[in-house]
Amino acid sequence: MVLHYLSERPGQSAGDDTSPVAARAGFVVGKAVGNSVVRHRVTRRLRAVVRAELDRLPGTADLVVRARPEAADADSAVLHRDLSAGLDRLLGDRVRSR
């Protein structure tokens, strides 16, 4: 999997005074991963795995998880391990804020 991380969201529109409450995550699971059934299964697994790790990110962060073809054969434990390792590399020694 490939992680794209944005620590702070770009400025909101002038009329929007709401502040972000929590980090957001998005998923890209292309046709290279498999057919529709496989892609949806991978997306569901990734969503569950990211939900467990999202609190590691600051509230202003956006994370995009792009699945590679190997994700089609990976179980949730492998996806979780890979996501955890990726976030460790991205965040380094940064303080975890909630």
Rank of each mutant, 00 (worst) to 15 (best):
V42L: 08
D16G: 02
N35C: 11
D82P: 00
R51W: 08
H4N: 03
M1F: 01
M1D: 01
L54E: 14
H4Q: 05
A23Y: 03
L90S: 02
A48H: 14
G30A: 14
A22E: 12
R68A: 13
V42R: 07
A52N: 08
G92T: 04
G30H: 05
R56Q: 02
L87N: 08
V2T: 08
T60P: 08
A74Q: 14
D93H: 05
L79A: 03
V37H: 11
G15I: 10
L87V: 12
T18Q: 13
R24D: 05
Q12V: 11
D75H: 00
M1E: 00
D75Q: 02
L90Q: 02
E53Y: 05
G26D: 09
A61Q: 15
V64Y: 13
L57D: 06
V38S: 09
A52K: 04
V64I: 15
L79G: 04
R66H: 10
A52L: 03
A72T: 13
M1S: 01
A32T: 13
V33W: 00
V29C: 07
S36M: 07
R89L: 13
L6T: 08
P20C: 11
A25Y: 03
V37P: 04
A67K: 09
A48C: 12
D16I: 03
V50Q: 13
L6E: 06
V49P: 06
E8I: 06
A67L: 08
A74L: 11
R39A: 10
V38N: 07
M1A: 01
R51M: 10
D55Q: 12
R41S: 11
L57N: 08
D16E: 06
S19P: 01
R45P: 05
L46F: 07
R41F: 04
A23P: 06
S97Q: 11
T18W: 05
R24A: 11
G15E: 12
S84H: 06
G11I: 03
D16K: 02
A23E: 03
Y5V: 09
D82V: 00
E70P: 02
V50S: 12
L6A: 07
L90R: 03
E70A: 15
V29N: 07
L83N: 03
Y5F: 14
T43A: 15
M1N: 01
T43C: 03
D88N: 10
A72S: 14
N35R: 12
R51E: 15
H40N: 15
S13L: 09
R24E: 10
D73M: 06
R66S: 14
L54V: 15
Q12L: 13
H80D: 07
R45D: 12
A67W: 07
T43V: 07
R66K: 14
L63V: 15
A25T: 06
K31D: 09
A14K: 02
M1K: 01
V95C: 03
D82R: 00
V65N: 04
V28L: 05
D75A: 01
L87K: 09
G15P: 07
R47G: 09
G34E: 10
L91T: 10
A71P: 04
A22L: 11
L91Q: 08
V49Q: 03
D55H: 14
P20L: 14
A23V: 06
A74W: 13
E70K: 11
E53T: 09
D62M: 14
P58T: 02
A32P: 01
